[in-house]
Design a protein around this nucleic acid. Structure first.
Length: 589
RNA sequence: AGGGCACUACCUCAGCUGGAUAGAGGACUCGGCUACGAACCGAGGCGUCGGGGGUUCGAAUCCCUCGUGCCCUGCCA
């Protein structure tokens, strides 16, 4: 990786200076030497600011330190090294190194960007379970679930790319009071449907709205016999809703390895897992009885109050079941990540504290909080309310804007920020929609590559263009692709006479391509798939600029070959990056 | 009252492990296809980085404080 390579070179230079005692009172080479991207391209391709940071400890002027570093720096990788301002070291990277970087893209192809497990950033854990969505099986998935679904699925892909063993899990909340509510709602709705109960008699107070139940009542009709056994009603309704949720998630390109049923895994058996957990807490002195309920001493772990584990009516709380669930997950993975709605932040001390009381490291549970999503249409906020039935479901949204725009809009913002989802913008099938900007970059790169081996351009608008016959046979093209996997000195030759715009756009593109593995590491470290979305946008912009300034298909064979190498590399990186977000990378649009 | 999150251009947002002149897209004005896809590129204006203080060679970034907005403070899930 480019950054690592430069960092190593600078560290070597520092070490040599240290041996010679030319760094004053500096005791050791720093662990990290940041490699920065200068905002102003005239400052070079990369910059090092370590001299200023070391000046204080070394008690030497920053510029003197910079000079010492440059003096001992192995300059092979750089065509120019400058010291500027207070002590910045500006580096211009040599074509040979740049060609190496592009060759890596070609040789690793689908794997380019992936971090090997041995090199993953955090060695303290390897297996991760990401739990997200985890909706009750009592209705449709709405927009908030949609954000979790998109972010969670992208995060799992991201973690895998970053060298972790990640799996995704959906916790089916199918035990407890809301399920009795579902059972009764299903039973009465079915009775109304069969004419056994007047609609006015439907218990609107305690049940889910009859209107909502109507949507599954047909299907219930085929599953529940005339005796209306509550258990049968409950399971039938649950199965229907669960199947619906699975279907729409799959449409949204969200797949779960594990669907974990609370009822099945935690509450079955002579002594259930939840019983055991509560017993364990009690024996360890972290739980006590009061007012007929069982309480966890959450205050001892920094919570603002103690929390109930088992209610006076004998039912366990959500917390108790969740603890058992998390214990179960800890047996299967060494790091847990939960995606929660930000409105649940108050529960974090409780669950972390209890898990700690049970002997876990609380830091092994990461909770990513996500702010709300609100909808606007033409600048006007669309009010969402569950009661009026006017809330937007994932299904409706995907139907309206398409799955790619749906995913893109929900993944491009960081979890901390509230999202304002502009329905009108997302539904636009034109250039205003940012998702098309990035997809177009990919389609455009594919188009250029197609034209190399194709006799006629595939668009009518190109009929009069100069590309009238194939420039390369398939075999020749394959040979080129193979050549791209090694550094043959092509770049130095082909790019020797570029003008200013050509040079700047070419180098910027190569450096951005080379940075992809670093972007993955970075995004994974903060559980931030949105950073990949930003990267894709930047890469797309750089490619469009490159395309505008550099004619790929031209008479100079070497130049054409070198540029084709870049176009093909860009196509691969865009595809790999879009794959992480599970957004389509179309070859044509 | 206590807690969480946010506040950067007219709008939507990047930038936050401190670095050189604070960026992108949209909107607005203007320019670029009888050359590989104009779903693109370029030029222009747009800012007390919510206010104030501190830390230091250097702060949008770290610390303190105040303000504003959203959310939470159940023996619901």
């Amino acid at each position: 990786m480019l950054k690592d390579r430069i960092e190593e070179l600078v560290k070597e230079a520092l070490a040599k200076n240290l041996e010679q005692g030319s760094l004053g009172e500096l005791a050791a080479v720093p662990d990290v030497v940041p490699v920065e991207l200068p905002k102003n391209p005239e400052h070079g391709d990369r910059a090092i600011s370590i001299a200023m940071k070391l000046a204080k400890e070394a008690k030497i002027a920053p510029r003197a330190i910079a000079e010492a570093i440059v003096d001992k720096l192995d300059g092979q990788a750089f065509s120019k090294v400058d010291i500027a301002g207070p002590g910045f070291i500006n580096l211009v990277i040599d074509w040979s190194l740049l060609e190496d970087l592009v060759a890596q893209v070609h040789s690793q192809d689908q794997d380019f960007g992936k971090v090997p497990a041995a090199e993953r950033a955090d060695q303290s854990f390897e297996s991760v379970i990401v739990e997200y969505v985890s909706a009750n099986p009592t209705g449709d998935l709405h927009l908030g679930h949609g954000r979790q679904a998109v972010l969670g699925s992208a995060l799992v892909n991201l973690l895998r790319s970053a060298g972790y063993k990640a799996s995704s899990e959906f916790y089916i909340n199918d035990a407890g009071v809301q399920m009795s509510k579902l059972a009764n709602s299903a039973r009465e709705a079915l009775m109304v449907h069969r004419g056994k109960l007047k609609a006015e008699k439907y218990d609107d107070e305690n049940n889910y709205p009859l209107a909502a139940m109507q949507e599954i009542v047909e299907e219930l009709d085929g599953k529940v016999p005339e005796d209306y056994d509550p258990e049968v009603c409950k399971l039938a309704a649950k199965e229907i809703y669960l199947a619906q949720q699975k279907e729409i998630l799959s449409e949204a390109k969200v797949e779960f390895e594990t669907w974990y049923s609370e009822l099945e895994h935690l509450h079955n058996g002579d002594e259930t897992k939840v019983d055991k957990i509560c017993q364990q807490l009690k024996e360890a002195g972290y739980a006590y009885d009061k007012d007929g309920a069982l309480w966890f001493k959450a205050q001892e772990f920094g919570d603002e109050r103690d929390r109930v584990l088992r209610k006076a009516d004998g039912y366990y709380t959500y917390l108790a079941a969740d603890l058992a669930y998390h214990q179960d997950k800890f047996a299967r993975a060494d790091r847990l990540i939960n995606l929660w709605g930000a409105d649940h932040h108050g529960q974090i001390p409780g669950i972390k504290g209890a898990l700690q009381a049970l002997g876990n490291d609380a830091a092994s549970l990461e909770i990513v909080l996500m702010q709300m999503v609100s909808l606007t249409k033409a600048g006007v906020e669309v009010k969402m309310s569950k009661r009026s039935g006017n809330f937007v479901t994932v299904r409706e949204l995907i139907e309206e804007v398409g799955v790619d725009a749906f995913r893109y809009f929900l993944v491009e913002s960081q979890a901390n920020n509230r999202i304002v989802f502009d329905l009108e913008l997302a539904a636009k099938q034109d250039k205003d929609n940012p998702v098309y900007y990035v997809q177009y970059a990919h389609a455009r790169s594919c188009g250029v590559l197609r034209n190399l081996t194709q006799e006629q351009p595939d668009q009518a608008s190109l009929a009069g263009s100069q590309v009238a016959k194939a420039l390369l046979t398939q075999d020749e093209y394959q040979t080129w692709l193979n050549d791209f996997k090694t550094n043959s000195g092509l770049f130095a030759q082909a790019f020797a006479d570029l003008n200013k715009e050509e040079l700047a756009s070419t180098k910027a593109l190569i450096l951005a391509l080379a940075n992809f593995p670093e972007e993955i590491k970075d995004a994974a470290a903060s559980y931030s798939p949105y950073k990949i979305a930003n990267y894709i946008k930047e890469l797309a912009a750089l490619f469009h600029q490159f395309y505008t300034h550099n004619r790929v298909i031209n008479d100079n064979q070497d130049l054409m070959k070198a540029r084709v190498s870049l176009v093909a590399a860009t196509q691969k990186v865009l595809r790999n990056a879009l794959n992480i977000l599970a957004i389509d990378a179309p070859e044509r649009m």
